[in-house]
């Protein structure tokens, strides 16, 4: 266990080596949030209800989605693709470490750092922009939101890890990483709650893992999901957690079997 704690500490320190880069990364997340915030803010000028959302619910959704984005959509797994391509992965293969745990611990370190900063950033924006937002006081809803966020973290880790593992077979796995990022931008729920899409598209998307990364936990926080909708959501969510967890191990095994080390 102590070796993973050491990895955690080193990852944290690594993130802070290039401090300017880190600060710029955080500025990026604020800029992205501002664009989305103001699109929705302007939509509600002179209107009370759009797509079944009020200004208060949509701005709360946007803030929680930004929090989920920082927690869930932060992963260092894409480094793996580089390590496979340049051959430095062999350094890990000879060490007494679980490959998956190593990357997962690094991700957790990153996420904790992000949480600290994103809470500060969102609080600052709330202080400056003074939007009306929902402070959820229902403990059950908060616990369900946290549970969905934890499952989302696992799903995102698995997806990004599997996509990076494709570097075992192809030279340019960056094309797939880019594809994953864009699909998540569009259909993850960060830009807009995906239930504003036409119903058939929304229903199909809810069967994929993507909405469970941002949309589902953010919508849960609003407290508007009930009964069957909640049950269906968590069933699909846990289905994807289990499937992807087995898939990650299978793809890693297959990749290592086909791997021939190159590099220095």
């Amino acid at each position: 266990m102590s070796k993973y704690w050491t990895i955690f500490k080193i990852s944290w320190e690594n993130s802070l080596v290039y401090r300017l880069n880190f600060i710029l990364w955080r500025i990026r997340s604020v800029l992205q949030l501002l664009l989305i915030y103001f699109i929705w803010w302007s939509v509600f000028q002179g209107r009370d209800d759009v797509f079944g959302y009020t200004q208060k619910t949509i701005l709360t959704y946007i803030m929680i989605a930004a929090l989920m984005r920082a927690i869930i959509l932060s992963s260092r797994a894409s480094d793996l693709a580089n390590q496979i391509n340049d051959g430095s992965i062999v350094n890990f293969l000879v060490k007494p470490l679980s490959f998956i745990k190593f990357y997962f611990i690094r991700d957790i370190a990153d996420k904790l750092l992000n949480i600290a900063f994103v809470i500060f950033e969102i609080s600052l924006l709330i202080f400056l922009l003074k939007p009306q937002i929902i402070i959820q006081a229902n403990l059950n809803i908060l616990l369900l939101t946290i549970l969905a966020a934890i499952a989302g973290i696992i799903i995102y880790f698995c997806i990004s890890f599997i996509v990076s593992l494709l570097a075992f077979w192809v030279e340019s796995s960056w094309a797939f990483i880019f594809m994953m990022t864009i699909i998540l931008e569009g259909f993850g729920g960060g830009l807009f709650p995906i239930d504003i899409l036409p119903n058939p598209i929304f229903k199909i998307l809810m069967l994929t893992p993507f909405p469970y990364l941002i949309y589902f936990p953010s919508k849960l926080y609003l407290g508007t999901m009930m009964g069957n909708e909640l049950l269906f959501g968590f069933s699909v969510l846990f289905f994807w957690v289990i499937i992807l967890w087995f898939l990650i191990k299978w793809v890693l095994d297959m990749g290592l079997k086909s791997y021939t080390a190159v590099g220095y």
């Binding site: 290039y18 300017l20 880069n21 880190f22 710029l24 990364w25 500025i27 990026r28 800029l31 992205q32 501002l34 664009l35």
Partner: peptide, 16 residues
């Protein structure tokens, strides 16, 4: 020597 996020900050500013 730090640039990766600087160029992306430009992209995000432009994206506004």
């Amino acid at each position: 020597t730090e640039i990766d996020h600087a160029v992306m900050v430009y992209r995000d500013i432009a994206a506004m």
